[in-house]
Design a protein around this nucleic acid. Structure first.
Lengths: 356, 356
DNA sequence: CTGAAAGCGCTAACAG
DNA sequence: CTGTTAGCGCTTTCAG
C-alpha cells in the first residue's frame, strides 16, 4: 500500500501493449486479441493494479440518470423519509455524474402504479431504484429493464421473482418477530390489540404482511394461548380513531399491550397522550417525527426503525459503481439492521438520521 | 444541478483573472491582491462554484500520514474492534492519498502512554486520531499539535479541555443511563450486582466512569432504595472468576439482575452458560464476538453497542477533508447512536458491522 | 502579485 | 485489432 501506485501505463509497459488496449480489456470493451487480453490480465495481476477512481471519474464524461419509483406521501409520512434519503444519497453520487429523478404513485391505486411504470419506461434512465408494491407489474418491469441492460435496485421491500441487481432493506418477517419479543418478552398478557389501518383499495402485496407473519409466528411458538384483537384506524380521521379506541378500551379495560405494523403508531400515541393513559406497552415502527415525539414523551415504549438513509446510499452506490465501473455488489440481498429505540437512546439517533 | 458544471476556468474568465489566481484565493494561499480576491469571491458566488473533488484529488500529489493512538489489545478484545475499524476507514480514504499508522500503548501503564505520545511527536504525521486515556498528557499533546498546525480527532472518548478538531463517539453518561433503564425498567428488584474488572494500576480517567455515573444517576432518580453489590473479576482468570461468582450467587440466590460497564460481559455469560443459570437479566456493552454469542444463546439479554466503524470512518473523513480541502467538520462533538441488541435483531447487525 | 504551462491517471475518439 | 492523442478540472511549479 505504501509503494507508488501502479497505473495503466505501468501495466501497458509490462504487457508490452498500449494503454488503449489495457483500457479495453479492463472494461471488457471487446475488440482485443485473446493473446493480448491474457497479457494484460497477467500484468494487472502481478503488478497488483487498482483503478484510480478519481482519475476515472474525472475522465468519464458520461452523465447518468437514475430514476426512482416510490409511493407518494404527505408531510410526515413514511415515504417522506425515503424521499429525503434519496436527496441525501444523490449528493454522495455527485462525483459519479449521476442525477436522480423521482416518480411517485399512489400506493393504493394499481392504475397509478401501472402509469408510473409506463412513465419510467418512456423516460428510459440508465438505472432504476424502486420501492415495489405490485408484484406482477414489478416482475414484468424487471424483465423489460433486463432486456435493455438497465440495472434495478430494490429498496424497502423486494419482489424475489424479479430480476434485480440488489436489495437493501430490513428483513420484514424478522421485524415482526422482533416486535413480538419486545412487546411480549416480559410477563406476557392474555390478550393484546393490533391497531391496523383501514384500506379501501385492497393491496394484494402489502410489505407489512410479512411483518405480521413474523409477529404471529412468534405467538405460535411462544404464546399459543394469547388472543389478539384487531381494530381499524384511519390515517386522517382523528375523531373516528378516538371513537374506535374509546370504545375498545371501554370494552377491554385490561388490555395494556398494543402493536401496530405500519408507521402510524403516532395515531395511537396521540390518543394515549390525550386521554392520559398510563402503563401501556406500545410497540411501533419507523422514525417519523411524530413517532419520535411519542417515544420521548413515553406514549410509545419501543420503536423499531430501519436506516433509510444508509439503505438508499448503498442502493444508489451500487448503481453508481455498476454504471461507472461495471462492478456488481458483493451481496445481492442486503438485509440491513433493525434498530431499537427507546426514550433513553432516541435523541442521539434522531440527530444522526437527519444529517447522515 | 442539471446545468453544466462551473469550473475554475469559468470563474477565472468571469473575474478577469487567471486560474492560478483563482486557485490561490480558493485555498487561501495568500499572495493575492485584495482587489483580485474580491473579484474571485464574487465570481464564485454568482456562478455558484463547487469544487470537483475528483479533479482536485487527482491533481493533488501530496501524500498524508495519519497517526492513530490507541490502547493495545489481544484477540477478541474491545480495542480490536477499533483497530479493525481503522483498516476499514483507511480503505475509504484511499482516494485522499492518506495512509494510517497505528501506535498502541498499554492502557494501564501511564509510562507507556507517555512513551507513545513521544513516539507520535517524533513521528510527526499530518494528522492524528486518538483514543485518549490519560487526561493531562492528552491536553498537553493537543497543545503541541495545535502549535504545529496538526489536527487531532478524538475517538471513543474525549478530553474536553484539549484542543481538538472533532469527536466521534457515544455519550458515555447516557450509555450508563440507558443500561439502567433496560436492566431495571420492568418490575425493578431490590438489589443487583455489578461485576467489575480488577485493576492493578489504577487509572485516573477511566471512560467507563462516566458510564457508571449515568447508571447510578438513574438509580438515584428512579430507584433510590435499590442496593448494588460490587464484585471483581479478572480478564484472564476463568477459575478465579467462577469462584467469585459461585460464592456470590450462593450468598445471594435472589439476585437476578447483572450489569457490567466494560466490554467483558462474556466472562459472565461464560459462567451463566456453564452453570446453566436461567432467568437472569444481564446487560452488557460492546459487540465483541463472544458477546454476540452470549446474546444469541440467551445468556445476555441486552447488549448496548456503538458503531465503531462509522465513528472511525467519520473521524478519518473529517481529517481527510481538513487535509485535502481545509474544511472543518460542521459539528465538533458528534455523539453517535447507541444501538440496543437483543437475540432477535443481533444477526442482522453483526453481519453488517463486519463488512461495513 | 499574476499568468502560463505541465501533468495527475484515466477515457474515448480517431487513425491506422 | 492496436497505438496515439486530446482532454476531464484542478494543483503546482516557474517565469515574469
Amino acid at each position: 500500500m505504501q509503494a507508488k501506485k501502479v497505473t495503466v501505463k505501468d501495466i501497458a509497459r509490462q504487457a508490452g501493449l498500449s494503454i488503449g488496449t489495457v483500457d479495453r480489456v479492463m472494461h471488457n470493451r471487446g475488440g482485443v486479441a485473446e493473446e493480448s487480453r491474457q497479457k494484460v490480465m497477467e500484468a494487472m495481476e502481478t503488478l497488483g493494479y487498482t483503478l484510480n477512481t478519481n482519475a476515472s471519474l474525472l475522465a468519464n464524461k458520461k452523465h447518468y440518470r437514475i430514476c426512482c419509483l416510490l409511493p407518494s406521501f404527505t408531510d410526515g409520512e413514511y415515504w417522506e423519509l425515503v424521499y429525503n434519503a434519496i436527496a441525501s444519497a444523490e449528493k454522495d453520487a455527485t462525483g459519479y455524474n449521476i442525477s436522480i429523478e423521482t416518480i411517485t404513485y399512489n400506493q393504493f391505486s394499481h392504475e397509478e402504479y401501472v402509469e408510473a411504470v409506463e412513465k419510467l419506461k418512456s423516460n428510459l434512465p440508465q438505472a432504476v431504484i424502486i420501492a415495489p408494491i405490485y408484484r406482477n407489474e414489478t416482475i414484468e418491469l424487471s424483465h423489460f429493464l433486463k432486456e435493455k441492460g438497465i440495472p434495478m435496485v430494490f429498496i424497502d421491500s423486494k419482489v424475489s421473482e424479479a430480476d434485480y441487481l440488489a436489495y437493501y432493506g430490513i428483513p420484514m418477517w424478522e421485524s415482526g418477530y422482533l416486535a413480538a419479543s419486545l412487546l411480549l418478552g416480559e410477563e406476557p398478557p392474555k390478550s393484546i390489540v393490533n391497531f391496523r389501518i383501514e384500506r379501501s383499495g385492497s393491496i394484494t402485496d402489502n410489505p407489512t404482511l410479512a411483518r405480521r407473519h413474523g409477529f404471529t409466528d412468534y405467538l405460535t411458538e411462544n404464546l399459543p394461548q394469547l388472543s389478539i384483537y384487531n381494530e381499524f384506524l384511519r390515517p386522517y380521521d382523528r375523531e373516528h380513531n378516538f371513537a374506535v379506541m374509546d370504545k375498545f378500551f371501554a370494552e377491554h379495560p385490561d388490555i395494556r399491550h398494543i402493536i401496530t405494523f405500519n408507521s402510524r403508531v403516532h395515531l395511537i400515541a396521540d390518543y394515549i397522550t390525550a386521554r392520559g393513559l398510563k402503563d401501556l406497552r406500545v410497540v411501533g415502527f419507523d422514525i417519523l417525527d411524530q413517532n419520535i415525539e411519542a417515544v420521548r414523551n413515553g406514549a410509545v415504549k419501543y420503536l423499531i426503525v430501519q436506516r433509510t438513509q444508509v439503505q438508499l446510499r448503498r442502493g444508489v452506490n451500487a448503481l453508481a459503481e455498476w454504471l461507472a465501473f461495471g462492478t456488481t455488489p458483493p451481496v445481492r440481498d442486503n438485509y440491513m439492521p433493525m434498530d431499537i429505540l427507546v426514550r433513553e437512546n432516541i435523541n442521539f439517533y434522531s440527530e444522526m438520521y437527519k444529517e447522515y
